[in-house]
């Protein structure tokens, strides 16, 4: 049904009144969803810009000029925080690159090549998605310890990639299946090898799926607490999420306003990423039968 078309007979009113009722209900429900989603972010943001003594003493709803400050963000310049941020960025980028590369190749294989038990392979892949990080975390701790990956960013990247992989591979598989095989065959006729055809013809057309998979991996890696806590046990190598918790436990006094400043710094990148990539993201998720 198009938007201009009046919705028929839900309330038994005339077309015009029905349309008005539906429109206002839409606005109200949208407002509720936005409020629920945006309120915590707003609260965090306004506290991050308010002087920390004020935050401790009273409840404020907006950083008016007399209590406005940027000093809270000084906490980010502490060497510890800098390390956490650096580690988080490295791990996030590492995870994105691993997930995108592996899922592209695996998805292509599933979509285009015939091998025994292909369907079962894909199904088993999804089972991996059912385990929560904590279930895998403990055995991984022991394995990583044995092979020397414990406490390394590389080890965390592998663990996070493994967790994002089922979805990413599934997405790529289904997405590549929407690209007509004739495109590749045309490339082969033009003299391109299978690999060259994949690189020149398939990968560029997968951009929406690549962005969706990357965003998914990014969100997972950026927000990960469990794996980082277990696999990066030393304070000086850990990432943001466990880092903040440790800072809260270790510091004598960590004002709430500082905490909000740190949280805001951590929330912004995924927000911006999702905002600017949303058109691609939607395309990536539009694949049928996903």
């Amino acid at each position: 049904m198009s938007q201009s078309e009046p919705p028929g007979g839900v309330f038994g009113l005339s077309y015009d009144r029905e349309t008005r009722v539906i429109e206002s209900l839409k606005v109200v429900s949208t407002a509720i969803i936005v409020l629920v989603g945006a309120w915590p972010i707003y609260w965090m943001t306004q506290l991050a810009f308010t002087e920390y003594e004020t935050v401790e003493d009273t409840v404020t709803v907006f950083p008016t000029p007399d209590i406005f400050t940027l000093d809270n963000f000084n906490v980010l310049t502490e060497p510890e925080m800098y390390t956490y941020m650096f580690n988080t960025v490295v791990v996030a980028i590492g995870t994105i690159v691993t997930v995108v590369l592996v899922s592209l190749i695996a998805g292509y294989g599933l979509a285009r090549l015939d091998f025994p038990q292909k369907e079962n392979f894909a199904r088993i892949l999804l089972i991996g998605y059912l385990f929560s990080p904590i279930v895998i975390g403990i055995p991984l701790y022991q394995i990583w310890q044995n092979i020397g990956l414990l406490g390394t960013r590389f080890g965390l990247i592998i663990a996070l990639s493994a967790i994002s992989m089922p979805f990413a591979v599934w997405l790529m598989w289904k997405y590549i299946m929407t690209i007509p095989e004739a495109h590749e065959e045309a490339a082969w006729v033009d003299g391109a090898s299978r690999w060259r055809g994949f690189r020149d013809v398939v990968v560029p057309q997968c951009r929406p799926a690549i962005i969706a998979a990357a965003l998914f991996a990014f969100a997972l890696a950026w927000n990960d607490f469990t794996f980082a806590q277990i696999l990066l046990p030393q304070t000086d190598t850990t990432t943001f999420a466990p880092g903040i918790l440790r800072a809260m436990g270790q510091a004598q006094f960590l004002p709430q306003a500082y905490l909000m400043a740190i949280s805001l710094a951590m929330t912004l990148p995924p927000l911006l990423f999702a905002y600017f990539m949303q058109s691609y993201l939607l395309k990536g998720f539009q694949v049928r039968a996903l």
């Binding site: 004739a182 065959e185 045309a186 490339a187």
Partner: peptide, 8 residues
């Protein structure tokens, strides 16, 4: 090809 198959 039937479906033309230009690289989009």
């Amino acid at each position: 090809f039937q479906d033309i198959a230009l690289y989009p």
